[in-house]
């Protein structure tokens, strides 16, 4: 994929477009599109997580411009957009993984169940137990399958006895759809599994601490179509218990698994709408350009 982006004179870097109630901008010129604010429906009632006027900087460089978005309960929201548009950056603001990047600075209000997660009394450790993360590249620990899944529960003292821990491990592996494949090899290294199995192991590891939200950053980009399908089915099952935000480069995937889709462009949130609407009747020119494959 090449990132040949159209030149946009109306988009000086650094300047943010503050607009809470998104206007319906209908600019239809091919390559001269101004992003005035977010179109569509970024807000929902009683959101699980929400961001308001989120600005993220890497040193001097701004990566996210005034993004406001809600994530509803028990929904899967897909985040799409060209490479480098800030999807991963935005996702990481939601569990404060950006804290680990020294030059990264986050502004705005980010809430989980209405509580500001960047408030001084908020503990990032607790937050990350409540908002789990699955990464693009499967990254199991170089430990046994069992220890991989048991790591989180051990860390947070979720099991009092070995039997309880066994149960958590088994339950998580079952939910991640991996248990049948590995039940006899729980003490073999997790790094010895196939890529798709490793990614499901990472999902099992994330759900073992029973998070409320799972953030997934291109969870299937390193996997073949069959492994991808398994993970997509899994996400569909998980949504009954968890809230999921997934970044993906595959529009088919977004269409298949998500209920809402958010389109990012150069650090701005361009459009948020129900998924079928985004893929059938996109509201914004840039969204249409992207999903019809005109760039990105």
């Amino acid at each position: 994929m090449t990132d040949v982006l159209p030149t946009m004179p109306g988009l000086p870097t650094g300047e943010t477009v503050v607009d809470d109630t998104p206007p319906m901008t209908e600019t239809r010129e091919e390559f001269d599109v101004e992003i005035k604010g977010t179109v569509g429906a970024p807000f929902v009632d009683d959101p699980k997580m929400s961001a308001r006027h989120s600005n993220v900087f890497y040193g001097e460089k701004q990566a996210i411009f005034d993004v406001s978005l809600d994530i509803g309960r028990n929904e899967i929201i897909a985040m799409i957009g060209p490479s480098g548009c800030g999807k991963s950056t935005f996702l990481r603001t939601l569990n404060r993984m950006n804290d680990t990047i020294p030059i990264c600075r986050v502004e705005g209000e980010h809430c989980l169940d209405g509580e500001d997660i960047y408030a001084p009394d908020q503990d990032p450790v607790l937050l990350r137990a409540r908002v789990g993360m699955v990464f693009q590249k499967p990254n199991p620990f170089p430990k046994s399958i069992y220890d991989n899944v048991a790591y989180g529960p051990r860390l947070h003292g979720l099991a009092r006895t070995r039997a309880e821990l066994d149960e958590i491990v088994e339950k998580s592996l079952v939910r991640a759809g991996l248990f049948n494949e590995v039940k006899d090899d729980l003490h073999k290294p997790g790094t010895g599994l196939s890529g798709g199995q490793q990614q499901r192991l990472c999902i099992a590891r994330a759900i073992a601490v029973d998070p409320e939200v799972i953030l997934m950053d291109e969870p299937t980009s390193a996997l073949d179509p069959i492994a991808t399908a398994t993970i997509e089915e899994l996400m569909d099952e998980l949504k009954s218990r968890y809230t999921i935000a997934v970044v993906t480069h595959s529009m088919q995937q977004a269409a298949r698994v998500s209920q809402r889709t958010a389109y990012f462009h150069m650090g701005k949130l361009v459009e948020v709408n129900p998924t079928n609407q985004v893929f059938t009747t996109p509201q914004h020119q840039l969204t249409e350009n992207y999903i019809t494959g005109r760039f990105g």
Binding site: T100, F141, L155, V209
Partner: peptide, 23 residues
């Protein structure tokens, strides 16, 4: 040490010192 391992630990809620000693 691959950063992805550290990220995995931090993403699960390990503190920096726990990440250091465990991984």
């Amino acid at each position: 040490v691959p950063p992805s391992i550290k990220q995995a630990a931090i993403g699960l809620g390990a503190s920096p010192v726990q990440t250091l000693f465990h991984h």
